[in-house]
Amino acid sequence: MTDFLQLFFSGMATGSIYALAALGFTLLWQASGTINFAQGEFVMLPAFAMVGLIAAGAPLPLAFVLTVVLAIGVLGWAFKRGVVDPLFRHGMMPIVVATIGLSIALSNGVRAGYSAEAHPFAGMFPDRIFNIAGVTITLADCGTLAFALLLVLATQSFLARTVTGRAMQAVAQNTESATVLGINVPRMIFYTFAINAALACAAALLVTPVYLAKFDMGVSLGTKAFFAAVIGGFNNSRGALLGGVIVGVGENLAAAYVSPQYKDAVALALFMVVILFKPQGLLGRKEERKV
């Protein structure tokens, strides 16, 4: 039983990391109807930005703030203007292909331009270990879980409770009506990309101490996050959290009780089952979308 709990808690911590990246997927989908397959690299770039700033002497909080500002400019504004805007009117497929290309370009760019080696990254939580009923939990695990939960809930209540958030949803549901109602559509879409960029920075802050800053850290993260988002429900932020935790815990239990080789197959199997029986995801709702 202690083994099971140990695996369960470790899986929860890993899962909350997947959830943060998955949140970016659901957010962009909900608010602008785009899927960004470079999501993993959107976490990798801020990680390297922070590594660079810390190496240049900035303390972690300052490095984080500067990185968020930089990310909103590059991963938010420039990504929207340079990739999404020109391709959006051609439909979903060109954007999907373009973001896959972007992810390859970004990771190889970092490999060729900076380094192919992994770099250590000090976490924001102190390295402390608790032992509860035979289960060891690190403060970092708890902190990651709590922080991820907080971010998911904050994002969701922003979308549901504030005027700006509702306007963003309105734009996603029906752009023309939103324009008629006097909503500044381009600005709302920019907000979505900006929030996505900031969330990616937060994910980088939590993820990098475990994943280490490396050019290919985004690959597995991006894939797992995509599965998590589909499992949880692509149009629901809480679904991202649920999906992430399910994938994280499922992987861990499968590695221990089935076989370590099938660890990565778990997310795929769950993904297929959900697609077959509940295509809108566990927490998602059916929706009509005009794209």
């Binding site: 695996l7 470790s10 861990n252």
Partner: peptide, 20 residues
């Protein structure tokens, strides 16, 4: 005799098995 993946992030199951 525990196999793990290249690039694996979470080693809790592997370590648990080894300890077991």
């Amino acid at each position: 005799d525990i196999s793990t993946d290249s690039g694996q992030i979470d080693f809790s199951a592997a370590v648990l098995k080894a300890k077991g």
